[in-house]
Amino acid sequence: MTQKTMKAGILIAALVVPALIFLYLKGFGENHYELPYMIPLTDSTTGNIMLRKNPNPKWNQPEMDTVFHTIPNWKLTDENGKEFAGESLKGKIYVADFFFTRCETICPKMSTEFTRVQDTFSQNDDVQFASFSVDPSHDTPEVLQEYAKKYDAKAGKWHFLTGKKSQIYPLAIKGYFIPVADASEYDKAVKTPDETFIHSEKLILVDKDGHIRGFYDGTDKKDVDRLILEIRVLTKIYETKS
């Protein structure tokens, strides 16, 4: 090997190696945070998962993305008696649940855990909370206001929502994928509110684009700890994108 060839080789190495290191660090050297999307959409005719072209694919990402369910638009009434639309939560990370104020079984546990999560993110305006009543004829704005005080809900951060059953029940089932039912509609023997209103203990984490990112047992402290952790992960994901 001639001296000229050696010099050329050294020059190429000096130019190429830093470039390769830069590409490596760019792709792998940053902190990467991941949180799954829930509820992929399927084609009603084929049953196949729906796909769409990735608008900005990176070198290590597929050209096609799975299409995931988004929460539909809704308009209900909040604890102040004012109209509150789901659009108000767009651009926010929020946690939703379905409850009723006369509940004496799982709801007090859920609301207590909700308070704990709210307090954890009390200084983060990008994190909001929404509680939907499954007993809307009883849970008027006035009743919801009293319930909010009981659990130290922060005004403008934790929203309590009521409306018509014909609005809330389909929203729970088709929007948030949470089971809910009024047992009195098919069993006239039920007497107490806890026998009447059937709903889930799940808390639902929704991202800024209306995608569901997780379900958590609102009566289980450890699972709510997981929710707190995953809210932080989702916050970091948005910070790295900005």
Rank of each mutant, 00 (worst) to 15 (best):
K164A: 08
V117L: 00
K208R: 14
T66A: 08
G214F: 07
L161I: 09
G214Q: 00
K109M: 13
V16W: 06
Y169L: 07
K149H: 15
E79C: 03
T101W: 00
D119R: 14
I237K: 07
T2K: 06
E230I: 08
K202L: 10
V224L: 03
P62N: 05
N48K: 15
E201S: 04
P18C: 08
I237V: 07
D182R: 14
M64R: 03
V17N: 11
V16G: 11
D135E: 12
L35Y: 09
D78G: 11
T192I: 08
D125M: 04
P136C: 03
P40N: 02
K241S: 10
R52F: 13
D78C: 05
T66C: 00
A14S: 02
W158F: 00
K221G: 03
S122E: 11
K157F: 06
Y151G: 09
A85Y: 01
T101S: 12
G214W: 00
F84R: 02
K109S: 05
Q118H: 03
L234M: 08
Y151M: 07
Y176W: 12
K75Y: 10
A96L: 06
K208S: 15
S131G: 11
K191A: 09
M64Q: 15
K188W: 04
Q3C: 08
D220V: 07
F98A: 12
K26M: 09
Y147W: 07
D207P: 01
L11M: 09
V224D: 00
Q61Y: 00
D119K: 12
K53Y: 06
P55Q: 07
L203Q: 03
N56G: 02
M50C: 08
A153T: 09
S122Q: 12
Q145I: 14
L35G: 05
I178L: 07
F197M: 04
K208F: 01
Q167Y: 12
K4W: 05
H159F: 14
T2E: 03
